[in-house]
Amino acid sequence: MRILDGGLVTTVQDTGRYGHYHIGMPPSGAMDQYAHKVGNWLVGNDESDATLEMTYMGADVEFESDTVFAVTGADMEPKLEDEPIPTWTAVRAEAGDTLSFEFATEGVRSYLAVAGGVDIEPVMGSRATYTLIGIGGHEGRSLEAGDELPIGEPSADADAMVGASVDEANRPDYSRTEISVVMGLCDYRLTDDGRERFLDADWNVSDEADRVGYRFEGPDITDMFEEREQPFGAGTDVTNVVDLGYPVGSIQMAGQPIILMRDAVTGGGYVTVGTVVSPDRDALAQCRTHSTVDFNAVDVEDALEIRQDRDARLETVQNSLEDATQ
């Protein structure tokens, strides 16, 4: 597959790189795991195969051999040889065909899955691109015009998938802006009133929203915290703590709230007050700059239920797509 135009930010991603958080290595991987996995299943791949993640404005690519592909996630009005093609659907392309995209009309990130997956050498068990230190993906960076990406051997099912499609009901609604959060970590630093104001406020996704984290604009946060004599080693600001680990999905209060995403900084000295539940990290990855997000506090049992609902939905999609090959 050849990249004719890299779009805004296009990287190779997969389900992520695990087991290295203690050396400061975030998982990376597709920001919207749901769209990534479903895209892979649509073309007969394993969910861990590598796809292309495109941001706001997709890439233009040329297929170098006959193949089956699918586009999931945000709608960027994909066109194959200038003809509109459906999203969330397996499509056949011939050698030499060009796939192009427009600016996303809803959501932020689209995934291009190709039968066989992007077949580059994994780094520490993953093909996910982590640009900060330049590892994974294609040369550890965003794709540019002229890049050539090798594609793996398609599975035996790939051809039979052509035309298979995900039910409307199982395509996420990317206009949704309610994000479920388990409050906790160091939220004891918030006053009761501060906690309430944090949860009630309208938070706008700022233009500093990328794979590392989403920074939000809203009310002043400094008066949401309890004054205290700062503990030894924490630093002097009311939002400082002795440097600690930040979960992916956690909300750190560094002047403004920042929710850490899949290329997270893994730790630091700002207070964390809660964590977005994992399915809603996918949803947040599709929230656009300037959109308003509503944080909804849930307890851990609710969080586990939200996860189970998502898993059940994924299983339904996977089963229906497996039936398509029979």
Binding site: V182, L185, P231, G233, L244, P247, G249, V277
Partner: peptide, 20 residues
């Protein structure tokens, strides 16, 4: 120690607020 849930898939344990 403070045992804290981080969403559905993390646990954060704060052994002390001060460094030692």
């Amino acid at each position: 120690p403070r045992y804290e849930y981080g969403g559905d898939d993390w646990v954060f344990v704060e052994l002390a607020e001060a460094m030692s």
